[in-house]
Computed example of a mutant assay.
Amino acid sequence: MQHVKIMKGIRIFFLSFFIVLVSISSIKAEVHPPKPERAVAAGGLDDDGDPIPVPGPVPVSIDRDIFFLLGAGLVLGLTAVYKNKIKKASM
Protein backbone atom coordinates (compact mmCIF):
# COMPACT_ATOMS: atom_id res chain seq x y z
CA MET A 1 0.00 0.00 0.00
CA GLN A 2 2.92 2.30 0.72
CA HIS A 3 4.13 1.75 -2.86
CA VAL A 4 0.87 3.11 -4.28
CA LYS A 5 1.14 6.29 -2.19
CA ILE A 6 4.71 6.84 -3.35
CA MET A 7 3.76 6.36 -7.02
CA LYS A 8 0.82 8.73 -6.62
CA GLY A 9 3.13 11.34 -5.10
CA ILE A 10 5.62 10.94 -7.96
CA ARG A 11 2.84 11.34 -10.53
CA ILE A 12 1.58 14.50 -8.83
CA PHE A 13 5.13 15.88 -8.64
CA PHE A 14 5.84 15.28 -12.34
CA LEU A 15 2.45 16.65 -13.39
CA SER A 16 2.93 19.85 -11.40
CA PHE A 17 6.53 20.15 -12.66
CA PHE A 18 5.49 19.97 -16.30
CA ILE A 19 2.56 22.34 -15.79
CA VAL A 20 4.89 24.90 -14.20
CA LEU A 21 7.49 24.33 -16.93
CA VAL A 22 4.98 24.87 -19.72
CA SER A 23 3.52 27.92 -17.97
CA ILE A 24 6.91 29.56 -17.50
CA SER A 25 8.01 28.84 -21.06
CA SER A 26 4.79 30.25 -22.51
CA ILE A 27 5.07 33.38 -20.36
CA LYS A 28 8.71 33.93 -21.30
CA ALA A 29 8.11 33.39 -25.02
CA GLU A 30 8.10 36.77 -26.71
CA VAL A 31 6.57 36.57 -30.14
CA HIS A 32 6.35 39.89 -31.91
CA PRO A 33 4.73 40.51 -35.28
CA PRO A 34 7.14 41.45 -38.06
CA LYS A 35 7.91 45.11 -38.53
CA PRO A 36 6.31 46.76 -41.57
CA GLU A 37 9.64 47.13 -43.41
CA ARG A 38 10.33 43.42 -43.05
CA ALA A 39 6.87 42.61 -44.40
CA VAL A 40 7.45 44.85 -47.42
CA ALA A 41 10.87 43.32 -47.97
CA ALA A 42 9.28 39.87 -47.96
CA GLY A 43 6.93 40.97 -50.76
CA GLY A 44 9.68 42.66 -52.75
CA LEU A 45 9.33 45.53 -55.19
CA ASP A 46 7.42 45.68 -58.44
CA ASP A 47 8.74 47.16 -61.72
CA ASP A 48 7.97 50.74 -60.64
CA GLY A 49 9.82 50.36 -57.33
CA ASP A 50 6.67 50.25 -55.26
CA PRO A 51 6.45 47.62 -52.51
CA ILE A 52 4.37 44.54 -53.31
CA PRO A 53 1.86 44.06 -50.49
CA VAL A 54 2.14 40.83 -48.56
CA PRO A 55 -1.21 39.02 -48.38
CA GLY A 56 -2.52 38.83 -44.85
CA PRO A 57 -5.19 36.73 -43.23
CA VAL A 58 -8.59 36.77 -44.87
CA PRO A 59 -11.10 38.71 -42.76
CA VAL A 60 -13.99 36.48 -41.73
CA SER A 61 -17.26 37.69 -40.30
CA ILE A 62 -17.97 35.95 -37.01
CA ASP A 63 -21.72 36.43 -37.24
CA ARG A 64 -22.13 35.06 -40.76
CA ASP A 65 -23.45 31.64 -39.76
CA ILE A 66 -24.29 32.35 -36.14
CA PHE A 67 -27.80 30.88 -36.42
CA PHE A 68 -26.39 27.51 -37.51
CA LEU A 69 -24.01 27.60 -34.56
CA LEU A 70 -26.78 28.48 -32.12
CA GLY A 71 -29.05 25.77 -33.57
CA ALA A 72 -26.32 23.14 -33.31
CA GLY A 73 -25.63 24.16 -29.70
CA LEU A 74 -29.32 23.98 -28.87
CA VAL A 75 -29.66 20.51 -30.41
CA LEU A 76 -26.53 19.28 -28.62
CA GLY A 77 -27.72 20.69 -25.29
CA LEU A 78 -31.20 19.22 -25.63
CA THR A 79 -29.74 15.85 -26.57
CA ALA A 80 -27.49 15.86 -23.50
CA VAL A 81 -30.36 16.83 -21.20
CA TYR A 82 -32.67 14.20 -22.72
CA LYS A 83 -30.08 11.42 -22.39
CA ASN A 84 -29.35 12.43 -18.81
CA LYS A 85 -33.07 12.44 -17.95
CA ILE A 86 -33.56 9.00 -19.57
CA LYS A 87 -30.56 7.64 -17.66
CA LYS A 88 -31.93 8.90 -14.32
CA ALA A 89 -35.42 7.58 -15.07
CA SER A 90 -34.10 4.09 -15.74
CA MET A 91 -32.40 3.85 -12.32
Rank of each mutant, 00 (worst) to 15 (best):
Q2S: 13
H3E: 11
V4M: 05
K8S: 11
K8W: 05
K8M: 09
K8Q: 09
K8G: 13
G9C: 03
I12Y: 03
I12Q: 09
I12K: 11
I12F: 06
F13T: 13
F13A: 15
F13D: 01
F14I: 14
F14Q: 02
L15E: 01
L15C: 06
F17K: 01
F17Y: 04
I19M: 15
V20D: 00
V20I: 13
L21M: 09
V22W: 07
S23N: 00
S23C: 05
I24C: 14
I24E: 12
S25P: 03
S25F: 14
S25V: 13
S25A: 13
S25G: 08
S26Y: 10
S26D: 04
I27T: 07
K28P: 00
K28C: 08
E30M: 09
E30V: 15
V31E: 15
H32Q: 12
P33R: 08
P34I: 08
P34H: 09
K35Y: 05
E37T: 08
E37H: 11
E37M: 08
E37N: 12
R38N: 14
A39V: 15
A39K: 07
V40G: 00
V40D: 12
V40Q: 15
A41K: 09
A41I: 03
A42I: 08
A42G: 00
A42L: 11
G43Y: 06
G43T: 05
L45G: 03
D47I: 08
D47A: 14
D47S: 14
D48V: 06
D48Y: 07
D50C: 02
D50T: 09
P51V: 05
I52E: 07
I52T: 07
P53A: 12
P53F: 03
P53I: 02
V54L: 15
V54I: 13
V54E: 08
G56W: 04
P57M: 03
P57G: 04
V58L: 09
V58E: 15
P59L: 10
P59A: 05
V60L: 12
V60H: 12
V60C: 04
S61N: 12
S61K: 13
I62G: 03
I62R: 13
D63H: 05
D63M: 12
D63P: 01
D63I: 11
R64L: 07
R64F: 07
D65L: 09
I66E: 07
F67A: 12
F68P: 00
L69P: 00
L70I: 09
L70T: 02
L70Y: 14
L70Q: 13
G71A: 15
G71F: 11
A72R: 10
A72V: 14
A72Q: 08
A72C: 04
A72M: 12
G73K: 01
L74M: 11
L74P: 02
V75R: 09
V75A: 15
V75E: 04
L76F: 03
G77V: 00
G77N: 03
L78M: 13
L78T: 01
L78R: 00
T79D: 01
T79H: 02
T79E: 02
A80G: 06
A80R: 06
A80K: 04
V81A: 14
V81C: 05
V81L: 15
V81G: 02
V81W: 08
V81N: 02
Y82P: 00
N84Q: 07
N84I: 04
K85G: 00
K85H: 10
K85N: 06
I86D: 02
K87H: 05
K87P: 01
K87C: 02
K88I: 01
A89N: 03
A89L: 12
A89I: 04
A89S: 08
M91N: 10
M91K: 14
